[in-house]
Design a protein around this nucleic acid. Structure first.
Lengths: 141, 141
DNA sequence: GTAATTGCAAATACTTTGCCACGTA
DNA sequence: TACGTGGCAAAGTATTTGCAATTAC
């Protein structure tokens, strides 16, 4: 784990966000989860639900996304997922289509080369990618 | 283009779907588009809007997904995207975060090896993946 | 004839915004 | 003090379902 709560708060301060209780609890929850979470899921988390409103979490997540501190992901659900961006660490995910479990993949991401190729061939800028594997986990099989 | 409308209809019949006007028009639209489309976008298509209701398109898309004829994709929008599955052809996409343009990527997909590795290491079955590149296209830059 | 399919309308689910009170800088 | 932030409630957008009429087989 190359990031802790204090460092995250500093990055937030650097982006002009204020040091509020809600922000701290939200970042702590995302950090502990170590995988993407939906707004609804975050809201149900013990600490967050007692500390702040759904709209607050929603707006914080979007501010954090603008600041480049969290990333918004699709992941095939109706609800949007959000995950912390850890500097110099790219994450892909393995998702069970049965129970919905989401696990980060340990293996190094194999598409950086293709990303470079696309950048030069198409002229797209600020490229990034999202890679997810879907399947049935052993428990659900 | 390795698939035509007749072949698609045959695959549908093979899965027990009935040969209806709505099905034919929907498949034709997806085939012509050659990229993922949202329900709303499909609905706006000239031919489809005059031929059938939103709920019909919705239900057809889901039956087609169950039959393995279309695939449901995330693609970062609030609305779900659907694309035809062409046998023996895997597609990844390049998406402009500015204007929302979606283009299929021509390059061969570089993650099949990792997919195999995940299969054996984790015991997940029916593995498939989704890979999207996001960036700013030259026009939007 | 029978069961799948369709259209219309109503119900959900999740997201997004308005407004005023509040807390941080 | 000033302005970003928070809570509550209402509005917006996309999805999903119920049911009676219709159509394919």
């Amino acid at each position: 784990m190359s990031t802790d709560l204090g460092e995250l708060m500093n990055r937030c301060r650097g982006s002009g966000l204020r040091r509020t209780k809600a922000l701290e609890v939200l970042l702590g929850t995302l950090l502990k989860a170590d995988r993407p979470m939906t707004l609804a899921r975050l809201q149900k988390s013990r600490t967050l639900s007692s500390q702040c409103d759904k709209a607050t979490i929603y707006r914080l997540l979007h501010r954090l996304a603008d600041a480049g501190i969290v990333r918004r992901l699709g992941l095939h659900e109706r609800a949007a997922y959000f995950a912390l961006i850890i500097p110099d660490q790219h994450r892909d995910y393995l998702i069970c289509t049965g129970c919905g479990t989401i696990d980060p993949i340990e293996a190094p991401c194999p598409v950086h080369h293709l990303e470079d190729e696309i950048r030069t061939k198409t002229g797209y800028q600020n490229l990034y990618h999202e890679l997810e594997f879907f399947g049935t986990c052993p428990k659900c099989a």
